[in-house]
Design a binder for these strands. Structure first.
Length: 269
DNA sequence: AGCTCACCCTGGACGC
DNA sequence: TGCGTCCAGGGTGAGC
């Protein structure tokens, strides 16, 4: 489940391909292209000018209004390998051959992910994504204002990418645990102190995960097809029935907003 | 407008 | 061993 830290890790590991030129693109499944504002062949011969991240989206920027936007869904991988690497992996839907002897592979077993060929990413992101949680303009005050009047569980609020983007099931559970807030609490029931605590917890959890190259629960791999390490630092996600790392009581699991939610009934109120 | 929920998909875990 | 069933979830859109 690639969330912000995983996509950020991929972005960083792909910086070395900036300046490389696309030789050829092999598209094996048409339905992996979610939107085509230009033809795929138009980026053949073009240089990669930047590799960027916005929320859980990754963008290859070619300039002249040509962007290749990637979302990894929950089982997607996007990684570099030698252009002559043995081709024995299942579910590789797109191969992008570069002029540096490498190729980029988009592999996605469950196909919740996809590619967008966009002339302008600004509008695309603006209508889907809210503030970047690690940016300066994501403040405690901004979060607190967003919570006002919202009756949905705080978990559902944080999973929505519109107020703040990049969080998914793992980091929402971890941040709520760090802040001592139960996931089912109505968003507008948080005090300003709790909102500030949650704001700090979100940024801390994301930064810690990025330092550990993200969480590999099952499918996630970075831009070099390597696992992350943050799964070894998770406090509650996937640990129902295990003792709480703070108090020792057994961690709970319940369904909120249609997602499995892990928490400590003793440490979270 | 705000909110809930079904749906898409496949591999792995689990039960018998 | 093998088969069937269930579960995981990001984003979208239908429906209340």
């Amino acid at each position: 489940m690639p969330e912000l830290p995983e996509v950020e890790t991929i972005k960083v590991s792909l910086q070395p391909i900036i300046g490389a030129r696309v030789k050829e693109i092999e598209l094996r499944r048409n339905d992996i292209l979610r939107r085509q504002e230009y033809k795929l062949e138009e980026i053949e011969g073009k240089r990669i000018k930047a590799v960027e991240r916005r929320g859980k989206y990754l963008s290859l920027v070619f300039g002249n209004h040509r962007n290749l936007v990637v979302h990894l869904g929950m089982s997607g991988r996007f990684y570099l390998e030698n252009e002559n690497a043995q081709e024995d992996k299942p579910h590789v839907h797109v191969l992008i051959f570069l002029d540096n002897g490498q190729r980029l592979a988009f592999q996605d077993a469950r196909r919740f992910g996809g590619l967008w060929l966009l002339k302008d990413t600004g509008k695309f992101f603006a209508e889907r994504l809210g503030k970047e949680p690690l940016a300066d303009d994501f403040t405690a005050s901004y979060l607190q204002k967003g919570l006002q009047g919202r009756k949905i569980p705080i978990k559902a609020f944080l999973l929505n990418q519109q107020p703040v983007c990049g969080l998914g099931n793992i980091y929402v559970d971890e941040a709520l645990f760090a802040a001592g807030i139960r996931p089912e609490r109505p968003a507008d029931s948080l005090t300003s102190k709790e909102a500030a605590s949650l704001h700090r917890a979100i940024r801390k959890v994301l930064r810690n995960s990025i330092e550990n190259r993200g969480t590999t629960f099952r499918d996630y791999r970075d831009g070099f097809n390597q696992k992350g390490n943050f799964q070894n630092h998770l406090k509650v996600y996937g640990k129902a029935g295990s003792p709480c790392p703070k108090c020792g009581q057994l961690l709970q699991k319940t369904i909120i907003a249609g997602r499995s939610s892990h928490y400590c009934k003793n440490c979270q109120y």
